[in-house]
């Protein structure tokens, strides 16, 4: 295909992309490789914002470092590109200091699960009322394709040239056991399902975690001879099995084996702020003014079960 000569395009013929109002168009083109899964994850996120219709002025997006860490910089929202692994505690500070904000953490597996793993588990334990979208491409992309905490066993990476021999995290199991209110996993080609899950997460009070299995079209593909990014994306999509409410113990991802996707957890638990208000109201009575109580009805504070 020949490159398009931009000067030839007449202004009246330019069709505006329907998502432009939510993207920082002055930062496009983005840095991601062709057929990288992050693009479709962002598309799903933007579609979800349009469906969930939150007050966009009150939505903050926080990213860490890495390929997915660049998402915040492309979204026309209050957006924070922070340090490696620490998007969740930054988001925790934002949310607790202004509970009116809807805070989304959008980052990668290396950022959230490896260097930031401690924050991930504690935010889930506290049921911090934030949405975490974790793009899992099984590899460190930005630094050139190193093995990570989610790399399937036997997969090759630049620092596991003979095949990975460390077991990877099963993220839905980890999040379920830590107490997340909402846990789902989709691949980057399940755009509609993924969008719906992000909408669910937006409407959920509590810690929501969505894993997006995405191809690293350049590095993971090359190291493992998996063809083009599109080939992998299709492969993940075709080889995935939708099983809602599956037992999280069955959700381990093996190299080039079918991936179980779906909505696994959707339960009610008091959020950090709910629990804090409940405790302090019990202790201080009228001397305590409940903090950041939303105008709408309070959520049911019973410990729910896997819905």
């Amino acid at each position: 295909m020949n490159p398009v000569d931009v000067s030839e395009i007449k202004k009246e013929n330019i069709e505006y992309h329907p998502m432009e109002h939510l993207l920082r168009m002055d930062r496009i083109p983005h840095i991601w490789c062709p057929a990288c899964g992050i693009g479709t994850a962002v598309t799903a996120f933007v579609s979800a914002l349009e469906k969930a219709k939150p007050d966009l002025d009150k939505v903050s997006i926080v990213s860490g470092i890495g390929c997915t860490g660049r998402v915040a910089g492309y979204m026309k929202l209050d957006s924070f590109h922070t340090t490696h692994g620490r998007a969740i505690p930054f988001a925790t500070g934002l949310k607790l200091a202004n509970p009116d904000l809807k805070v989304v953490v959008f980052s990668g597996d290396g950022d959230l699960v490896a260097i930031g793993g401690n924050h991930l588990i504690h935010a889930a334990r506290r049921n911090m009322d934030i949405v975490v979208i974790c793009v899992n491409n099984f590899i460190y992309g930005m630094t050139g394709g190193q093995v990570g905490a989610t790399t399937p066993e036997t997969a090759r990476c630049s620092t596991s040239p003979y095949g990975n021999f460390e077991p990877p995290f099963n993220l839905p199991l980890l999040m379920e056991s830590c107490g997340a209110s909402y846990v789902a996993r989709w691949t980057a080609l399940h755009i509609r399902r993924l969008t719906d899950s992000i909408v669910d997460a937006f409407n959920k009070r509590g810690f929501s975690f969505i894993e997006v299995i995405a191809p690293c079209s350049t590095l993971y593909a090359r190291w493992n001879r998996l063809g083009s990014g599109l080939d992998i994306m299709k492969y993940y999509h075709e080889q995935s099995i939708t099983r809602h409410n599956a037992d999280p113990r069955d959700l381990k991802i093996d190299f080039q084996k079918p991936i179980i996707v779906g909505k696994f957890i959707d339960r009610e638990r008091p959020t950090f702020i709910d629990a804090m208000n409940q405790r302090f109201s019990a202790v201080f009575g009228d001397r305590y003014t409940p903090y950041g109580v939303p105008a709408g009805p309070r959520s049911d504070e019973k410990e729910g079960v896997n819905a």
């Binding site: 692994g85 505690p89 925790t92 500070g93 401690n118 804090m276 201080f284």
Partner: peptide
């Protein structure tokens, strides 16, 4: 609690030192 502040004991100092930066951006 009686002054309208939010205290959180974080999981480590990395978290504490960035949570205060996040909070500062809300004013």
């Amino acid at each position: 609690p009686e002054c309208g502040g939010v205290f959180i004991q974080m999981e480590d100092e990395l978290a504490s030192s960035i949570a205060i930066i996040g909070a500062a951006w809300t004013g």
